[in-house]
């Protein structure tokens, strides 16, 4: 039984080199799946493959029982998958509000309600709505990036290292917001370097090594698994 959004047997990579070797990641609505692992393990690649940004040699991507493996990234976005890249994830020369509007580019209905919802989630964005996104602090930029992605009212949200380069306080704050988003019924996949914190909010976790699923299990299980602790969580 597949979960709401799932991938399996993914193999492939850039320019002939296989970064992924038979890996699979799944997530249910209202749950958070976290992908951790050492550098170069293929964490981001796995996520990009699920979005269709990488052509796979083999593997399936299923959304709500429908095979979407053949769709372009744009089409997958239209199907309700939102993605927040690790870098360059905002329109720095546009205002905060315009960033949110661009997130909703595909929608033709009234988006004001969604914008208000995002302002409720990230109140600071309301204060800065007319400021250029590029002028904001690192944490605020991440909020803009997540807000932009949420504008399509997605059923799946994928975040590529959302806490990279932000302070620990901002990181906790951001994770709290992500849990709030989860509670609205969104399926969330997070790729993270900060494995400990990320696994602590995870419903399900994946430890990727060499493009393979090395360990899988509930977030708390992985956190308590001595092998995982030793190898990836610093004891």
């Amino acid at each position: 039984m597949n979960k709401y959004f799932s991938s399996s047997n993914m193999t492939g990579g850039y320019g002939g080199v296989d970064i992924l070797n038979d890996c699979g990641i799944e997530v249910n609505q209202g749950e958070i799946s976290v992908v951790v692992g050492p550098n170069g393990a293929g964490k981001s690649t796995a996520m990009k493959a699920m979005l269709g940004m990488i052509t796979l040699k083999s593997g399936d991507v299923i959304l709500n029982g429908k095979d979407i493996s053949g769709l372009t990234p744009e089409d997958r976005v239209a199907q309700g998958i939102a993605f927040v890249p690790q870098t360059m994830n905002i329109f720095s020369e546009l205002t905060v509000k315009e960033n949110l509007e661009m997130g909703a580019f595909l929608r033709n209905d009234n988006i004001n309600k969604t914008i208000e919802d995002i302002y409720k989630l990230f109140p600071i964005l309301k204060d800065k709505k007319n400021q250029l996104a590029g002028e904001l602090s690192g944490g605020q930029r991440q909020q803009v990036a997540v807000g932009r992605a949420l504008m399509t009212k997605p059923s799946v949200l994928m975040l590529d290292e959302p806490t990279a380069g932000v302070s620990p306080i901002v990181m906790d704050e951001l994770f709290d917001r992500i849990i709030e988003i989860k509670n609205t019924g969104v399926a969330i996949i997070i790729v993270e370097q900060n494995a400990k914190q990320a696994l602590s909010i995870a419903d399900f976790g994946y430890v990727l090594v060499g493009g393979k699923n090395k360990f899988t299990g509930k977030g708390s299980e992985l956190l308590n698994n001595p092998e995982v602790r030793k190898a990836f969580l610093g004891g």
Binding site: E74, P85, M102, F105, L106, T152
Partner: peptide, 8 residues
Amino acid sequence: DLALLSGI
């Protein structure tokens, strides 16, 4: 890239 991701 982000414009493409936003469906532009």
